[in-house]
């Protein structure tokens, strides 16, 4: 066997992708439905009462944030739930006894989560293009940024899934951390609309940079410096990938 078990690695990646496609009603459709509802309810109704933000209509303004929220929550929950499920259902030993390195296992999981995040993000983008004729100013940047953020949060999810002991912990992470940070990251507003203290706090929210990076890629407008957004995305990608691989290597909570 060579230095890399490529077949093993791609098999696990395929399994991870196949897993969420097998339950597409749970993993793909809900994001599409909730985003459509956000666009219809928040966008179309509030658009008549809210003037343009930074020169774009309110409906258009919220779509990049919805893309980001959808991509990163799906990427996180794919790896987190898959890893926890494998632990609870006694499947993880199948991987640990196989000639797969911890790096191969981590990266296969991360790619699986990235693909789910990416698919979910891109579908919202397509929804925006078809539903309200959304222009995509920098298409390659948009695709690249969705991929990068999906990767970062997929790696974070893997780490959380490995450390979690129950579904409760995952739900807590989703409901108490990820969703509030996404909403407070400026999906539905520009932070310039907030009081100064709230604006300052927003700068400590990493998701704020992700949402504004996406908004810049699609609409060419952003509250934060686009370079700072992309830099933050890159930093989180490296940080979470490094941590996820280090945890896998340590065997914490999966080996005794």
């Amino acid at each position: 066997m060579s230095n890399v078990n490529w077949i093993g690695f791609w098999t696990l990646t395929g399994r991870e992708v196949g897993r969420f496609f097998a339950v597409w009603r749970q993993t793909i459709i809900p994001g599409l439905i909730s985003s459509t509802l956000y666009i219809l309810i928040f966008g179309f109704t509030l658009q008549q009462r809210i003037s343009e933000i930074n020169g774009v209509s309110y409906t258009l303004f919220i779509i990049p944030g919805l893309i980001m929220m959808n991509a990163l929550t799906n990427a996180t929950s794919n790896t987190a739930s898959s890893m926890l499920q494998m632990k609870l259902l006694q499947q993880i030993p199948d991987l640990l006894v196989a000639p797969l390195s911890s790096a191969e296992i981590s990266l296969a999981y991360i790619i699986g989560g990235t693909i789910r995040g990416f698919v979910n993000g891109i579908l919202i983008m397509i929804l925006g293009v078809f539903l309200i004729d959304m222009p995509v100013l920098h298409p390659f940047l948009t695709i690249g940024f969705i991929l990068m953020v999906s990767w970062a949060f997929s790696a974070m999810g893997l780490m959380i899934g490995q450390l979690a002991d129950s579904w409760d912990m995952l739900a807590m992470m989703q409901n108490f951390i990820l969703t509030p940070l996404s909403f407070l990251g400026g999906i539905f507003y520009s932070i310039s609309m907030l009081p100064e203290w709230a604006q300052m706090i927003s700068h400590f929210n990493p998701i704020y940079y992700m949402i504004n990076g996406m908004r810049f890629s699609i609409l060419g407008i952003a509250d934060s410096d686009p370079w700072l957004s992309f830099g933050m995305g890159l930093f989180l990608t490296f940080l979470f990938t490094f941590l996820a691989m280090a945890f896998m290597q340590s065997g914490k909570k999966i080996k005794v």
Binding site: N5, G8, T11, P99
Partner: peptide, 25 residues
């Protein structure tokens, strides 16, 4: 192993292919 694993998503045939794949087949 002594503990029997459970899988919700794939057929047993598919699971065997996955397992073979992990071993480089």
């Amino acid at each position: 192993a002594q503990e029997l694993s459970v899988d919700w998503f794939f057929s047993i045939e598919k699971l065997l292919y996955f397992h073979a794949g992990y071993y480089g087949m």
